[in-house]
Structure formats: C-alpha cells, structure tokens
C-alpha cells in the first residue's frame, strides 16, 4: 500500500488566495491541481511536500475559450475539456491529436493542462504541442502577472521558471491565418508516455511556408523544439524533398537516451519519421485556412 508522507492540506478559492497560501506556507508547499502526477510521486515518496494548496475550487483557472485572436486555456482545464473543445478542434488539431493519446479517458477527466506543464516531465506531450504552436504561459505571483513564451518555460527536466509563490494561470495560443497542425506519437501501449512524439504547426501564405513550429518530446530536444528544422522550412514551398530534409534536421536536433522505451538510435529515427508524418498532415491541413 502506497501512502504519502503527512502534509498540511489547504484549499484556495481564488488565485490570490492560492498565492497568499503559498507565501505563508513557504517553499516546501506545492499546488495540487488534478493530482495525477503529484500524488503518484508522493505515494512513492519521490515528493514529500510539507503542505498542499488545492486549487480545484478556483473557478477563474478553468475553461477553454476564444478571446480576440487567441485561444486561452485555463491552467485547471482538464485534459478531457481540451479534447472536447470545439474551439481547439477548429483551430489547433495538434492539441486534439495530442490529447487523444495522453493517458486514458478517466485520467483525462482529472489531469489538468497547467499541472502537466508544471510537472515538466521530459516526455510530456502538451509541452511539445505548445512548443510547436509557440504558445505563451501566463504566470501570476505576489509581484503581479508575467507572460513567458512556452519555449522559455522549461529550464530542465521537472524544472520550470515558476517561482515558489507563483501559479500558472493560463496558456495562450495565438490564432494566425493559414495554420495547419498535427501531432504524431509512438507509444509502447495505449495511454503510455511516448517513445517519441512530434507535433508540427505550419503557417502558409500564397503557397509557401511563412512560419513553422516543430515540437519534439521524449528525445531530449532543447525546449521541446527543433529550431534547425523550423529554419529550413521557413519561406519555402513545401515539397517531399523539403519535408525529408526537415525530418533529417529534427532527428539531428535532439539528444535521445536509451531507456526501457527504446534505444537512442531508434528514438532518433522516430524523431525524423514522425516529423515527416506530422509535417505532411499539417501542410495538407493548411489548405483552405489561408487568409
């Protein structure tokens, strides 16, 4: 029987209350969102926070909505909510693709978008999807609010720029015309962490690529992205040769390690192949989306 170490439990009703509690309880306190990463770690005693601040009652952190030219995803939006969102399905296929292969439907009922990002697991799917989309993370703390590009959000495995009394409130994804996106993942069995996964977002105008985002996960890619492959794509007319080259660049632009999910060279091969597949789907999805 796995039992977490003892801790103090507090519940916040607002973001300000959560921040005040974190300030009062000190750096050994943690936020409790869906709990589907934190509680398993606590049960294994890999994490032993002295206090938990439950933010499940903080209504202002929920929801997925369209605001101006952005899709705004509340930190407490559940995976199931993102998967079911019509706004997301319309604009960012990559997120629906990724959600469909994150854990299982029951876990998706509980796990949250903010929790997934803050856990900062190096194999996390949404980190790659948001990196491809060049999303922005909104963080609030005692000093006020700041916005951080998602590619500057992770500073290492299980580490983010979120400070001790800070809380991620929202992820914002800009809507730009001519966008197509897709997510491709290889997993050992349904609901597992990826062996390798790649997300692609492509923006087209007049038949050529104006901007490209490539998110890679589980292969040690810096900031979950491949700038080399992105630079190759920008300003070009998409061809099979270009897609091949981008796949090759992505496979060289990461640093996979061998583990129980597969040897490093296999993961590198997957990074290339999944980049090609995601790019093909993303490019074909841009048809009819141009301004």
């Amino acid at each position: 029987m796995q039992v977490p170490a003892a801790f103090q439990y507090e519940r916040a009703k607002t973001v300000d209350e959560a921040i005040a509690l974190l300030e009062r309880l000190g750096p050994e306190a943690r936020l409790l969102a869906g709990g589907h990463s934190l509680l398993p770690m606590m049960k294994l005693r890999l994490a032993q926070p002295e206090a938990l601040v439950d933010v499940n009652d903080v209504a202002e952190l929920g929801g997925v909505r369209l605001e101006g030219n952005e899709v705004r995803i509340g930190a407490m939006a559940r995976h199931a909510e993102l998967l079911a969102s019509a706004v997301v399905a319309e604009h960012f296929r990559i997120l629906a693709d990724a959600e469909r292969v994150i854990a299982d439907p029951i876990v998706r009922n509980r796990g949250t978008i903010g929790g997934s990002l803050c856990q900062a697991d190096p194999s996390e799917d949404l980190s790659a999807a948001f990196a491809a989309l060049k999303a922005t993370v909104v963080i609030r703390g005692p000093e006020g609010e700041r916005q951080v590009p998602v590619r500057e959000f992770h500073v290492g495995p299980y580490q983010t720029v979120v400070g001790p009394a800070e809380i991620v409130t929202e992820v914002r994804v800009p809507i730009r015309p001519g966008c197509g996106s897709a997510y491709e993942k290889v997993e050992r069995r349904v609901g597992d962490w990826p062996v390798t996964a790649v997300g692609a977002a492509i923006w087209m105008e007049g038949g050529s690529i104006t901007d490209a985002g490539l998110g890679l996960t589980a292969v040690g890619a810096e900031h979950f992205s491949s700038p080399r492959a992105e630079d190759l794509l920008k300003g070009k007319i998409p061809t099979d040769e270009l897609i091949d080259e981008a796949g090759k660049a992505a496979s060289e632009d990461c640093n996979p390690t061998s583990d129980q999910r597969g040897p490093a060279d296999y993961k590198r091969h997957l990074a290339g192949e999944l980049t090609r597949r995601a790019l093909r789907r993303a490019i074909s999805a841009t048809r009819g989306q141009e301004a």
Partner: peptide, 28 residues
C-alpha cells in the same frame, strides 16, 4: 495503486475518477 488498472473508478461530482489518485480531503 498507480492509476492504471481502473478498478477503483467511482464518480466525483458526476465524473468518473481513479480514486487511488484522489485524496479523500479533495472530496470535501
């Protein structure tokens, strides 16, 4: 005990959850 098998599924506020990965106090 690892939110994989699903035999502990019950409803919390009308939604199925794996109750080995929810604290009792969260159901308050």
């Amino acid at each position: 005990d690892t939110s994989n098998c699903g035999t502990c599924v019950l409803w919390l506020d009308g939604t199925p959850v794996k109750s080995c990965t929810v604290l009792a106090v969260m159901a308050d």
